[in-house]
């Protein structure tokens, strides 16, 4: 176990290990999302209240889960990078942030589209949507800060500090937004707090969520490998690798 962790910590070890891991994760992601997607679109029964519009849930909820998890992932990577000076963690963080922002956007977009048939309007200052919007700004801030530094290592460390500051603030922001929401809005119909979903509705959702997570892991592995090649391009082993191809 420790050997594997050690191996993951060095760029070269990560590169070789991830090459073995990657196909399996991609396959799992594709399989889960295909089954979950078809099941959710074709076989899950229509909602008794929202009809077929509820099928948006199968992309909205996984995207929202990922949006939040990736931010936590960024902070974990930031701690690993700042405390143990493991560069691979920062490379992973640098490729995870744009994908996290993308997932946040998808969650916002699908939430807004879902809002039209449910609430009758594109945007409602619902607690979840509002927190999502703030999360998007936090992502953009981290990406922009990393890019603003001329020196890459400083940019990495600055983005790491901001990710940690952000992750400490997210629960505070979430709770204050929820509190603000209950204060200012009469209880509206909430999307996810529904009378217990039947299994044929939530099982595909579960598959989709797990599938999205696998997709995220696979994509992160793939792009971290690219990042390793880019940053270590003058190292012996990368040059040997390139020559061998």
């Amino acid at each position: 176990m420790w050997r594997i962790i050690h191996q993951l910590g060095s760029p070269k070890g990560f590169y070789t290990l991830s090459a073995r891991l990657q196909p399996w994760v991609w396959a799992a992601a594709a399989l889960l999302m295909l089954i979950g997607g078809l099941w959710g679109l074709l076989y899950a029964p229509a909602d008794y209240q929202q009809g077929d519009s509820f099928r948006i849930i199968y992309v909205h909820v996984p995207a929202a889960f990922l949006a939040q998890s990736i931010f936590v992932g960024l902070a974990v990577a930031a701690v690993v990078f700042l405390v143990w000076k493991i560069k691979v963690a920062d490379m992973a963080a640098s490729v995870m942030a744009p994908f996290g922002a993308g997932m946040t956007f998808v969650a916002l977009f699908s939430g807004a589209v879902w809002g039209v048939p449910t609430w009758g309007t594109w945007w409602v200052w619902d607690a979840r949507l509002t927190s999502m919007l703030i999360l998007l700004f936090l992502y953009i801030g981290i990406i922009a800060l990393r890019g603003a530094y001329a020196h890459r290592d400083s940019g990495s460390r600055a983005a790491s500090v901001l990710a940690i500051v952000g992750v400490i603030n997210i629960p505070i922001i979430k709770y204050s937004v929820e509190w603000w929401n209950t204060l200012h809005q009469p209880a509206t119909f909430s999307i996810t707090e529904r009378p217990a979903m039947p299994a044929e509705m939530w099982l595909p959702l579960l598959l989709m969520v797990v599938g999205f997570y696998c997709f995220c892991i696979a994509l992160t592995l793939m792009r971290t490998r690219n990042e390793i090649l880019r940053r270590e391009s003058s190292k012996r082993w990368v040059r040997d690798l390139v020559r061998g191809q």
Partner: peptide
């Protein structure tokens, strides 16, 4: 047609 919700379900997906 998605039970009349095609304009919402398909863009989101």
């Amino acid at each position: 047609a998605m039970g009349g919700y095609a304009a919402y379900v398909w863009p989101a997906w």
